[in-house]
């Protein structure tokens, strides 16, 4: 006789799940929750990492929100990059995936690899530094000088007028990542019948096709893509530091993350850095919640 495991009762029903989850939960507490709590606590102190923290109440928040120009600058930078690389990268991934989806199979896999390669490459953006180097032997400079468009080398990486754009290019280059892949996959398994039905129903051009048929089927990917994009665009920082210096001239490519690590590691003001971290975190969570709601409602159409 097969023994019947009891499936009733609290433990019976949920015990297994708690067991499986248990691992994860404990360390989640330790590695994620505790640092967040620590950050929140530290945000009310002055902590220079060598001596004990000194409690200062909400003065850090006051300074941050009212008196810190660099914060405003880095906030606007971060939002700027987030908007540009977020939606822009998103749309770009979508468009490229869409175009790729209509090519043949081998071409498609080759192109997918090509476009995914930058995010595989990770920290290999040194090349960009050679391209945008500020002396007359930097590749871009020498090409432009040879063409006669400029007479003296431009300081792409240190001149505040240019370095934001350099950063955007590089980040966009790296932005076609897992989201892009899921779009490619999504396109592949779209329901063909719907397209035919649409053609009969009078859909005349591609735009309508895209809006009415393709997009609604892709909502789950859009969701995933959104989550990934938000988290990565708010976390832009490392590339900027490498390319334009840390900090960049007049903080022109400074982002919230860099602002945070600047205060934390360069200025020895961990308390203030924690404040920035808390604010950054709040912004990210809010944005995500908003997008989540928006996409949910769209999928219910």
């Amino acid at each position: 006789m097969n023994k019947r495991k009891s499936t009733s009762g609290f433990w019976g029903r949920y015990g297994a799940s708690y067991f499986l989850l248990g691992w994860w939960l404990i360390l989640f507490l330790v590695f994620t929750v505790i640092p967040i709590i620590a950050a929140v606590i530290l945000s009310f102190t002055n902590f220079d990492m060598v001596n004990m923290p000194k409690f200062v109440g909400i003065s850090n928040y006051v300074t941050l929100l009212l008196d810190d120009e660099i914060f405003i600058k880095s906030l606007s930078n971060t939002l700027f990059y987030a908007v540009v690389t977020g939606p822009l990268g998103y749309i770009m991934s979508f468009v490229v995936a869409w175009m790729i989806s209509e090519t043949g199979r081998t071409v498609r896999s080759v192109l997918t690899l090509i476009f995914y390669a930058p995010s595989l490459a990770g920290n290999v953006y040194m090349i960009w530094m050679y391209i945008f180097s500020g002396d007359s032997y930097g590749i871009l400079n020498s090409v432009l000088m040879r063409l006669g468009l400029i007479t003296a080398p431009l300081q792409w990486l240190t001149d505040p007028a240019y370095n934001s754009y350099v950063v955007i290019i590089v980040v966009l280059w790296m932005s076609m990542g897992a989201g892009f892949l899921s779009f490619v996959a999504g396109f592949q398994q779209l329901n063909k019948e719907l397209f035919e039905a649409g053609a009969i129903d009078g859909i005349r051009n591609r735009w309508q096709e895209l809006w009415h048929i393709t997009l609604p089927q892709m909502v789950p990917q859009l969701l995933i893509g959104a989550v990934l994009t938000i988290s990565s665009s708010f976390a832009i920082g490392a590339q900027n530091a490498q390319l334009t210096g840390n900090p960049s001239t007049d903080y022109s490519t400074h982002t919230l993350l860099l602002h945070m690590s600047d205060y934390g590691y360069a200025r020895f003001e961990m308390g203030y850095a924690s404040t920035i971290a808390v604010v950054l975190f709040a912004i990210m969570v809010t944005t995500w919640a908003v997008i989540n709601r928006a996409l949910r409602s769209m999928s219910n159409d």
Partner: peptide
């Protein structure tokens, strides 16, 4: 001083503002 790093930044920025 404890603000030396800041001085370095400001001077660099000042230089760039003036020269660029």
């Amino acid at each position: 001083t404890g603000a030396s790093y800041y001085v370095a930044r400001c001077i660099t920025n000042a230089y760039r503002r003036a020269v660029y």
